[in-house]
Simulated assay, not measured.
Amino acid sequence: MAQLPRPLIEQLKNEFAPRTLSVMLTGSFARGEATAYSDVDLIRYMVETPKTERERYTLTVRQGYLISLTQVTIEEQETDMQKPEKAIMVVPSLRQGQVLYDPRSHLHYLRKKAFDFEWEPLQKAANEYVAEELMGFAEEAHKIISAILTKNESAAVYGSMSLVLAMPRLFAVQQGMMIRSENSLFSQVQEAVGDESNWTKYHRKAIGMDAVAEDGAVFERGRAALSLYRETVAFMGKFLQPKQTEVVQNALNAIKNYGG
């Protein structure tokens, strides 16, 4: 596995430490999983919240390495640890990070909170979040059905991608899974649901991880995405409120009537 050269680490510390509370290395280099083509993920903890998205996240190159710089405040990440949809990514990032600069121990105390983090207080909020999102994605199911019937490949792909990206994240949030990285989200959820489960079968087919027939492949993946939505509801439908149930059930009826 690739390792960062010490001169580069010192350059990054010297460049990003001024006007900063703390700097942390995270991502594949922090986990010891980097390759020669991995980017270098840095989190720079600022005194004040960056005013624009361009300030919040930037890319640059140093000594031939792509540097991915995220700028946040300590308070923002403390807040994110109280949001289930954020905590599944923020907590593991803090736990696996490497401190590069922390003269007043701000990051030390933030990471301690991450190591002490417990999921149970967030479970109710997680269930409510998942229920609301499941209702929202009912619209994508309707769009995919319409796209298949009208042979609109662009719409079918767009709707399918929305579901195959969102459904694993919803499962992770409801289960309180600590996601090691964005790259491992699919594999972690598939393993948790079961490699031989219908959910995993439909997800792999919809995302293109398993081969589908070349003729009509776009629409076949669309049908797999519809089945993935149906399977996700089967796992988490018990958290739906009556209004949400009405919307989701309408989408399930549409899938059934269409024949997906």
Rank of each mutant, 00 (worst) to 15 (best):
Q3M: 13
Q3E: 15
P5N: 01
P7N: 02
P7S: 03
L8W: 00
I9E: 07
I9G: 03
E10G: 06
L12C: 05
K13G: 08
F16S: 08
A17D: 00
P18M: 04
R19F: 11
T20I: 04
T20H: 03
S22F: 07
V23F: 00
L25Y: 06
L25M: 02
G27A: 02
F29Y: 01
R31C: 06
T35N: 05
A36M: 09
A36Y: 03
Y37C: 10
V40C: 05
V40H: 04
I43G: 02
R44V: 15
R44F: 06
R44T: 07
M46N: 06
T49M: 13
K51C: 12
R54D: 12
R56K: 10
Y57F: 15
T60L: 15
V61Y: 04
G64F: 01
Y65K: 05
Y65T: 03
S68Y: 15
Q71D: 15
T73Y: 01
E76T: 08
E78H: 11
T79G: 13
T79A: 15
M81I: 08
P84Y: 04
E85S: 10
E85T: 02
V91A: 03
S93F: 03
S93P: 09
S93E: 09
L94H: 00
Q96C: 10
Q98G: 10
V99W: 11
D102A: 13
R104Y: 12
H108M: 14
H108L: 14
Y109G: 11
R111L: 09
K113C: 07
D116M: 12
E120H: 09
L122K: 02
Q123N: 03
N127V: 12
E128K: 07
V130D: 03
V130M: 08
L134C: 08
G136I: 13
E140S: 13
A141I: 00
H142S: 05
I145M: 04
N152F: 06
E153N: 10
A155E: 12
A156P: 01
V157Q: 12
V157R: 09
S160N: 12
M161K: 14
M161V: 14
A166C: 14
P168R: 01
P168Q: 01
R169H: 04
L170P: 01
F171R: 06
Q175V: 02
I179A: 03
I179R: 04
N183P: 06
N183V: 00
S184Y: 05
L185M: 03
Q188A: 03
Q188I: 00
A192H: 01
A192L: 05
V193E: 00
S197D: 08
S197F: 00
N198G: 10
T200G: 02
K201P: 00
H203W: 02
K205N: 07
M209V: 13
V212D: 05
V212W: 00
E214T: 14
D215I: 13
A217S: 13
V218F: 10
G222F: 04
S227W: 06
L228Q: 04
R230P: 05
F235A: 10
M236R: 03
F239T: 10
K243E: 14
E246R: 06
V247F: 12
V248G: 01
V248L: 04
N250E: 14
N250D: 14
K256C: 08
N257K: 09
